[in-house]
Write a protein that binds this DNA or RNA. Structure first.
Length: 514
RNA sequence: GCGGUCGUAGUCUAGCCUGGUUAGGACCCCGGCUUCCCAAGCCGGGUACUCGGGUUCGAAUCCCGGCGACCGCACCA
C-alpha cells in the first residue's frame, strides 16, 4: 500500500469522494463483487448507455427488450448453463492446492472437453486415478471432488421447490422470447435484438472493483440471420477500419504481439468467418475510440477452442489496456450459430424457425446468431480511467462531452450585488432547456473551476457584473481553460450545438484574453 | 477458498513496539468576511481509531474471531 498510487487507486478515491462509485454495503463492512453508483456515476452510466444506443443499436434498427433476472431452471438447463456453469474442482491431499479437474484431464489425460463435460463428479475422480494424474506441483494425489456453481440459485414462490437462477447473461431472455419478438418484427431478417440489464455470476473471488462484479450490467445483442444469406450489406462502411488482432495460431506459438489488419483483409483471409461479426467488431472498436480509448490501447483476442463458451463457434474478446490489470476484456464477439434457438426448440417443443419464401415454395430454418456482448460497468470504469488526467497538479476528468454527468456548471462570480439572483435565473433557463446543470457558489472562482474539472463538467458559465450590464456571460472550457464571452440569449442554441458536436468551444463566443 | 501483509475522518497520515491527556497534523468539506476569473487570505465549524468479544482499574495500542483491502496461488465458462 506504500507504493505510488496507480490509476485504479486514484480513480477509486475520486469516485468515492465525488460520488461516481464505491463498494456496496460499506456501513456493514462491504461485500466484494457489488458496487454502488453514486449520483454522478449513475448519470455517467446512463449517458454511456444512451450513447451506445445511438451508436450501436439505432443505425441497424436493433430492437430492445427487457426480461426478468430470475430464470426458471428449465431455461438454463436447455441453454446448457446448468451443466457448464459448474466447475469440478479437486484438491491435492498433500499441498492443498485446488485445480480444475476437467483441465487436468484435458491436459494430462488427453481427454477432450466434450468428454470431460459429460462426466459425473465421482467419475472425474476415478478418471484422474486411472490416468494416474498427480498434483502437477508436488506430486501428491487427489481424493475428493467438489462442484462450484457460479450461478446464483434461488427458489421461485414461497413454498415451491421449483429452482430458479439469477441469469448469468441477458442473452437467454432474448432467445426464450424470440418467437414473439420475431412476430412483432413481422418476420424480418436479419433482425437484431438487444437487452441491457443486470446479470449475476457468483464469482469465487472478485477482487477487481468495477471490473469484476457478481452483479453487473450486461449489454447483449443477438443478431439473427439466415445462414444461407449472410451478407452484411453495410460491410463497406467498415471495410478499411483496422483492428489489432492476437490470433489463435500465434497464441499457440506463444506470440502475443498483435497484427494490424483491415476488416476487408480479415474477412478475405478467413480470420473472421462472418461478415456481420466483422461489422460489429469494427463498430466496437470505433465506439471505444469515441469513448476516449486510442486504437493502440485496444486489441481483439481470438479465443482458442477450449477457451470458448459452450455455445460459441468462433469468438473474439475485445480488450482495453488498464494500468492495474493490463489487458482487460470489455466485450465478447461470438458466433453462437443456431445453438441456443435449437436447444430451446428441442426442450420446449415450440417451433422457433423462420420461414423464407422462394420460387420452389420456401424453406424453414433456425436463424443463426452473431452476438456482441459488452460489460457496461467495465466501460464506465474504462471511460473514467482514460479521462483521468492532471493539469497543474489539478485533476481534470476529460470525459467526452456526450458522456459527462454534468454538462454545465453555473458560477455567480460574487455572492452579492444581485449576481446570485441573476445566476439563479441562468440556472433555470438552462435546466428548462433540458441541460444537466450544476450550481456552485462556494469558495473562490478558481476553486469552483477546479471542482468542476475534477468531475469532468466541460463548460463553466460565470455570471459577473458584465452580465448585469449587457447580458453576456463567460464560458470556460474544462480542457484548455480558455474563455469566451457570449450572449445569454443565445446560450441555449449554442449549447445544444456544442453538445451534439456541431460546434467547438471556440465557436461559442468571443475569445477572452486575460 | 488457501498463504502472506494490512485496516485511524471524504483523502493522506502521526500515535501502536513499551496500554494511561480533550487521538495530533495536512489536504478537503461547510458557514462568514474578503475577493472582478483558475484550489489565494483571515475567522469559525465538521467528520476517524473496521466490527464483535477477551485481558485490564484503564485498550487505537495486547490476545481471539468476523468483515474488508492488497500481493501470490486458484478461479474468471
Amino acid at each position: 500500500m506504500k507504493q505510488p498510487k496507480d490509476k485504479y487507486e486514484v480513480v477509486s478515491e475520486m469516485g468515492k469522494r465525488r460520488g461516481y462509485f464505491w463498494q456496496s454495503y460499506e456501513i456493514y463492512g462491504g461485500v466484494g463483487g457489488f458496487i454502488t453508483y453514486g449520483p454522478l456515476g449513475s448519470l455517467l452510466k446512463r449517458r454511456l448507455e444512451e450513447k451506445f444506443r445511438r451508436f450501436y443499436l439505432q443505425p441497424l434498427a436493433i430492437l430492445e427488450i427487457e426480461t426478468s433476472v430470475i430464470m426458471p431452471e428449465n431455461v438454463l438447463e436447455a441453454s446448457g448453463h446448468v451443466e457448464n456453469f459448474k466447475e469440478p474442482t479437486v484438491e491435492c491431499t498433500k499441498c492443498k492446492r485446488k485445480f480444475r479437474a476437467d483441465h487436468l484431464l484435458q491436459e494430462f489425460g488427453e481427454m477432450t472437453d466434450t468428454e470431460t463435460e459429460k462426466m459425473a463428479l465421482q467419475s472425474v475422480v476415478d478418471e484422474l486415478k486411472s490416468h494416474n494424474i498427480r498434483c502437477p506441483d508436488c506430486g501428491g494425489d487427489f481424493n475428493k471432488a467438489e462442484q462450484f456453481m457460479t450461478m446464483f440459485t434461488t427458489t421461485i414462490g414461497p413454498y415451491s421447490d421449483s429452482v430458479g437462477y439469477g441469469r448469468p447473461e441477458a442473452a437467454q431472455g432474448i432467445f426464450v422470447e424470440f418467437k414473439r419478438i420475431f412476430e412483432s418484427a413481422r418476420g424480418r431478417l436479419p433482425l437484431g435484438v438487444a437487452q441491457i440489464g443486470h446479470a449475476l455470476r457468483n464469482e469465487i473471488s472478485p477482487r477487481q472493483g468495477p471490473v469484476r462484479l457478481r452483479e453487473f450490467t450486461i449489454i447483449d445483442i443477438e443478431f439473427f440471420f439466415d445462414p444461407e444469406d449472410k451478407k452484411c450489406l453495410i460491410i463497406n462502411d467498415v471495410g478499411d477500419e483496422t483492428l489489432r488482432f492476437v490470433l489463435a495460431e500465434n497464441k499457440l506459438k506463444g506470440i502475443t504481439e498483435p497484427v494490424t489488419i483491415t476488416i476487408k483483409e480479415a474477412l478475405n483471409k478467413g480470420i473472421i468467418k462472418e461478415e456481420w461479426q466483422a461489422y460489429f467488431m469494427a463498430q466496437a472498436k470505433r465506439f471505444l475510440v469515441e469513448m476516449g480509448v486510442p486504437e493502440d490501447q485496444q486489441r481483439f483476442i481470438e479465443k482458442l477452442d477450449y477457451e470458448r463458451a459452450h455455445y460459441s463457434m468462433q469468438g473474439f474478446d475485445q480488450e482495453v489496456y488498464l494500468e492495474r490489470w493490463g489487458w482487460t476484456e470489455v466485450s465478447g464477439h461470438n458466433y453462437r450459430t443456431d445453438f441456443d434457438l435449437s436447444r430451446h426448440m428441442k426442450a420446449s417443443g415450440v417451433d422457433l424457425t423462420a420461414f423464407k419464401e422462394s420460387e420452389d415454395g420456401g424453406k424453414r430454418f433456425v436463424p443463426h446468431v452473431i452476438e456482441p456482448s459488452f460489460g457496461l460497468d467495465r466501460l464506465v470504469y474504462v471511460a473514467l480511467e482514460y479521462a483521468y488526467t492532471k493539469r497543474n497538479k489539478r485533476t481534470v476528468l476529460s470525459l467526452p462531452r456526450d458522456l459527462t454527468p454534468m454538462q454545465v456548471s453555473v458560477f455567480p462570480l460574487m455572492n452579492k450585488d444581485g449576481l446570485l439572483e441573476k445566476a439563479d435565473e441562468v440556472y433555470h433557463l438552462l435546466v428548462n432547456e433540458g441541460f444537466t446543470v450544476d450550481w456552485d457558489s462556494s469558495g473562490s472562482i478558481g476553486r469552483r473551476y477546479a471542482r468542476a474539472d475534477e468531475v469532468g463538467t466541460p463548460l463553466g458559465i460565470t455570471i459577473d457584473y458584465g452580465t448585469l450590464e449587457d447580458g453576456t456571460v463567460t464560458l470556460r472550457d474544462r480542457d484548455s481553460w480558455k474563455q469566451v464571452r457570449s450572449k445569454l440569449a443565445e446560450l441555449p442554441s449554442l449549447l445544444h450545438g456544442y453538445f451534439c458536436n456541431r460546434l467547438n468551444f471556440e465557436d461559442l463566443g468571443q475569445i477572452i484574453e486575460r
